[in-house]
Deep mutational scan, measured.
Amino acid sequence: SAVVMEEGSPGEVPVLVEPPGLEDVEAALGMDRRTDAYSRSSSVSSQEEKSLHAEELVGRGIPIERVVSSEGGRPSVDLSFQPSQPLSKSSSSPELQTLQDILGDPGDKADVGRLSPEVKARSQSGTLDGESAAWSASGEDSRGQPEGPLPSSSPRSPSGLRPRGYTISDSAPSRRGKRVERDALKSRATASNAEKVPGINPSFVFLQLYHSPFFGDESNKPILLPNESQSFERSVQLLDQIPSYDTHKIAVLYVGEGQSNSELAILSNEHGSYRYTEFLTGLGRLIELKDCQPDKVYLGGLDVCGEDGQFTYCWHDDIMQAVFHIATLMPTKDVDKHRCDKKRHLGNDFVSIVYNDSGEDFKLGTIKGQFNFVHVIVTPLDYECNLVSLQCRKDMEGLVDTSVAKIVSDRNLPFVARQMALHANMASQVHHSRSNPTDIYPSKWIARLRHIKRLRQRICEEAAYSNPSLPLVHPPSHSKAPAQTPAEPTPGYEVGQRKRLISSVEDFTEFV
């Protein structure tokens, strides 16, 4: 048969007729292969192709491409040299491709048809291009793949890379869960390890502090508590009631339409708007009261037996805890006409967050109470924005700035309102402590230090009264110190430094 060459192609190359033996071998191979691939376009007849790359030819070592076609129900084999250009295909004639002069020997084609199974398996396991790669995943090629499931790999992101949580363990979102698992493993320790309690022994800490320079003076030496005195035992138990972190309780009120001037209507609300609910979820963490331990979680007086509701929101960081007394989460009882059960919590909070959804101005004093010092007013606006402002009593104007209003988005509203309420509550605590000038409020841990110092002074006084020969370590507060001759004046800087060093040991009130 003659071949018409394309323009620009090399000279004529004689194409030899395939021997009958080659056709029989390739026909047997075509019957084993699956003929249901995917359909081509209507211009080209339905056909199945599979590209198999052999590394070497037997005796020649030339890479070839073998295409199996099922045109007219008769499979045909096409061998081509890759750099050459194939002729145009037609549905009426068999596929013809040019070969190099080196394939002119018909014996070479017979060798190609009689490829060993080793070469076929190696060509099938190679990388296939384009559409033949999808075909190689079918059941027909499963014989050339190794048996057994593939090893499982770690989760992959859409980009093909490992997620960040699997790369950096410290930033993994499941870090707290692993800590819980470690605690569970520790709890399952053997009885021999049960006595080993991690941490620092208080006796060891005391020993280090006792021999430090801070205890060089007799006034700073630790003293032993009497065991037989019940009054001192009660004082030590009272110390446990003062937490070592700051605590805040903040009221949250929802004002519906037409309720801006009605205290009873505001306290009777059992739910609010959708934006109000989203605002609550951002204030803190939802907790169930019956599962809380009052000595570990500050509840601000809420009952854990269901008297004040089942849930509330709280927030904490390293040095403070805040609980929100939310009116809509507290039960509304029919027998309580004046809502006294709610007001006994909300009316005693220094700061209230008022979500004013009424469309009218909310005035300070609508919720009557002796300790309502500051109101954080949240007014929802259009386009997911809110107006946040402050209202306070006249005696609080020096501590709280009420002249600045803020426009905040719904997303950042819980954070801004919480921070403003916490700052206002700190100012309210300082303002409330002014009624007792001898006990200015600095912080909870300073209050613990003052309680310890008062307890020490009482013990020293009782020891001096029981044994008059012992001198008083600290003179009583009601006694007057003996007159001392004025010492020589020293520079102001040295006096300030000495006073600062003494105050650092005794108390921190002056620095606050």
Rank of each mutant, 00 (worst) to 15 (best):
D217N: 13
E218R: 10
N220E: 15
K221T: 15
P226E: 15
N227V: 12
Q230S: 07
S231C: 14
E233R: 13
E233Y: 08
S235H: 15
S235Q: 15
Q237H: 10
L238W: 08
I242C: 07
H248V: 15
A251L: 06
Y254C: 00
V255M: 02
V255F: 02
G256Y: 00
G256W: 01
G258R: 05
Q259N: 02
S262N: 14
I266V: 06
L267M: 07
E270H: 06
Y274D: 04
Y276G: 01
Y276S: 00
T277E: 08
E278R: 11
F279R: 00
L280A: 03
G282L: 02
G284S: 05
L286Q: 10
I287E: 09
K290V: 11
C292M: 08
V297F: 15
L299D: 15
L299E: 15
G300S: 15
G301P: 14
G306P: 13
Q310P: 11
Y313V: 13
H316E: 15
H316F: 14
D318A: 09
Q321V: 14
V323Y: 14
F324K: 01
M330H: 07
R339T: 14
C340K: 15
K342C: 05
K343C: 05
G347K: 15
S352E: 02
I353H: 00
Y355V: 01
S358G: 04
G359M: 04
G359Y: 05
G359F: 04
K363F: 07
T366D: 04
I367C: 08
Q370T: 15
N372C: 08
C385G: 06
L387M: 09
L387Y: 05
Q391V: 08
C392G: 03
C392P: 03
G398L: 12
T402Y: 05
T402M: 07
S403K: 08
V408C: 06
R418K: 06
M420R: 01
M420E: 04
Q429P: 01
H431M: 14
H432T: 07
S433T: 12
N436H: 09
I440R: 07
Y441H: 15
P442V: 07
W445M: 08
I446E: 13
I446R: 13
R448M: 09
R454S: 15
L455F: 10
I459M: 14
I459G: 09
A464N: 09
A464P: 11
Y465V: 13
N467V: 14
S469D: 15
V473Y: 11
P476E: 15
P476T: 15
S477G: 13
H478Q: 14
P482H: 10
P482I: 14
Q484L: 11
Q484Y: 10
P486N: 09
A487R: 10
E494D: 11
E494H: 11
R498W: 06
K499S: 09
R500F: 09
R500Q: 14
L501Q: 12
V505C: 12
V505Q: 14
T509F: 05
